[in-house]
Design a protein around this nucleic acid. Structure first.
Lengths: 195, 195
DNA sequence: TCAGAGCCTGACCGATCGGTCAGATTGGCG
DNA sequence: CGCCAATCTGACCGATCGGTCAGGCTCTGA
């Protein structure tokens, strides 16, 4: 009955992604995942140290891109930071919306766990950049609503095709953001050209 | 030791609100609430039929206003619906941001519970109105991001004063929404006069 | 042939959850 | 006084959770 390790490992990962997407991380038990795979709960814990490690492996690609975006943002200020944050985050959300979706509303609690502690800081820097590093309350509120709204909305965007979702989100973000500096307006409607 | 019923009842309610705001609904046990009040878990369940009833009583005022907004929206179409939905929802979010905040990211799961089933439908109608009843994907995505973002952001708006939060949200929503009908643009920058 | 590594499992663990229940305590009232 | 209803509690319940463990199975290679 013993399958190749990579096979079962991958099956568990896929099953976990499916269940998390439906019932969330906390709402999905190891038993649920095992049932979906057709193995025992002990097998799940043979392939993954614990439940958190399972989530971490699922989120790893998205987190890597998030860190890259964070690096790319350091040093940028004002409108340049705002632009880069907007484009980068929309790209991230579109590419990894399935991964983001399976966290549903559990960001606040998950970010408190040690394994994801640094994500908290990254997301705060991202919000700051999206606000153009302005300390005006309106700018900070706008940035927060956009980040939270896009993150939470991902669950419902799963079936929207990329080339429809990306321009829609980019347009929304660009329109919502006030230019941080009137002498540096948004680049002239280049709707979609970036990495 | 027995206090007047209204007294303990209110203390439990207040303690629950405090705990829910910190650790969320699911992350707060009846034991936690009892500890905060200084009574036994059985006492909590003497005053409230179950945990869900506690939450329902906490959310009742907000839900009543939400239903009123829903009623007010029926019959309106296009830009009129969009305007009314925007102003109404921003008002709701500002007034009841503490109540909304204590749900954190648990909307999706709570809305599945029978006691809150109708909220699901109301929020869908609200989203539809905010999109100006348009079926353009962009409009629907924008409406969803705004609703989700403001709902989820409430937890962080708790300390922002009303007269700072409301205009900021109104400006954001008005700027983000595309006018559903070019011949009916947004009313000329009357930033803040409504019920 | 056989030892061992890799894979898998049922049984079990302690903790915690929401919820129940019989009974102790108390305060008001006839 | 005695009665009763309201209030409150400790002990307990069944269910579920994440996680552990000893051992069984199968395949491989010396």
């Amino acid at each position: 009955m013993a399958r190749a390790v990579s096979e079962t490992h991958g099956e568990i990962l896929a099953a976990a992604a499916r269940r998390f997407a439906v019932t969330g991380y906390r709402g999905t038990s190891l038993q649920d995942i095992a049932r979906e795979v057709g193995c025992s709960k002990a097998t799940v814990l043979y392939h993954f140290a614990n439940k958190e490690a399972l989530l971490a492996e699922l989120m790893a690609p998205a987190i890597a891109v998030l860190r890259a975006l964070d690096d790319q943002l350091t040093g940028l200020t004002g409108a340049a930071a705002q632009q880069a944050a907007a484009v980068g985050f929309v790209d991230l959300a579109v590419r990894f919306r399935r991964e983001i979706a399976l966290l549903r509303g559990e960001f606040p609690e998950l970010l408190c766990q040690p394994a994801f502690a640094h994500i908290q800081q990254i997301s705060e820097r991202l919000r700051d950049a999206l606000a153009g590093h302005s300390d005006r309350p309106g700018a900070r509120i706008t940035a927060l609503v956009l980040l939270a709204g896009i993150s939470e909305g991902c669950a419902e965007f799963v079936d929207v095709p990329d080339d429809e979702l990306r321009p829609a989100l980019l347009t929304l973000v660009r329109r919502a953001l006030e230019p941080v500096d009137a002498s540096l307006p948004q680049p002239p409607t280049t709707e979609d050209k970036e990495t």
